[in-house]
Amino acid sequence: MTAPRFDANAWAGTWPFGTGETSSLATTVAGLAGAGMAGGLVSPLRAVLAAEPSAANADLCHKAANLQQSGFTLRLAPVVDPSLADWPNQFAQANHGAGDALGAIRIVPNYHAYDLDHSGVDVLADTLAARSIPLIVQIRMLDERAHHPRMVIPPVPVRSVAALAQRHPALTIVASGIFFGELAAVRDARNAYVELSSVESGDTLPDVLRTIPPERVLLGTHTPIYVPHAALAKLGGEGITSSALDAIGGETARRLFQVQGATAPQAT
């Protein structure tokens, strides 16, 4: 019997490109549950293009508090922009608004136009590490080739994620939206995890595990922008133990995002 699957990368709201996919929090949860997910970590899409993310975070937290959910474990990852002078207020409001559902803080440096060596990032990293809250660094929202031709947003350089992880060894970092060809850049950063939604190769998971150990790999869908079934199809391959699949498929995420009842990591 497989462990419950947990999505480490989901969103709610409207993404204004492509088909203009819109998904309320309730729709995101229903879509993930319908695809076979038992839980997920959700961020507000509106925050990605917002000048200040607090309103989008507050809206998500409000909807989460009022969501009627059955059997689905919802965790929230509000978005913070540490390049803004008010980021401590953003964090405080998000922390308060999400309450016990807070699973992580997400940053989108490329859309919010700062680099990971910005001083605010280091202060935020220290703040999160002190509270054992993971930091999700969104490398990209879409394959750059598929961006609007007049709005191409370069990805966050993955080597800067590795450098951030090395500067803050007590911080848990998740590289979200990373590509297969970028995995090697975070191989040696032991406090850096990778999320699989944009990772693909001819035999995805076995190929990933040649670079990143299973205890640092997280299932992620990037719903509603991507089809969630595609993420779940990555959970397979020769030579991968059921315990590794369970860790990747949800157990590690449940522990990182402090889901009640999550099991402690196994010694390897």
């Binding site: 695809a35 693909e200 190769s201 001819g202 089809v227 969630p228 199809a233 397979g236």
Partner: peptide, 13 residues
Amino acid sequence: IRDFAVQRAKVDG
């Protein structure tokens, strides 16, 4: 370049 199962899942989903 891509994964059979993942690409099929696009259609399945």
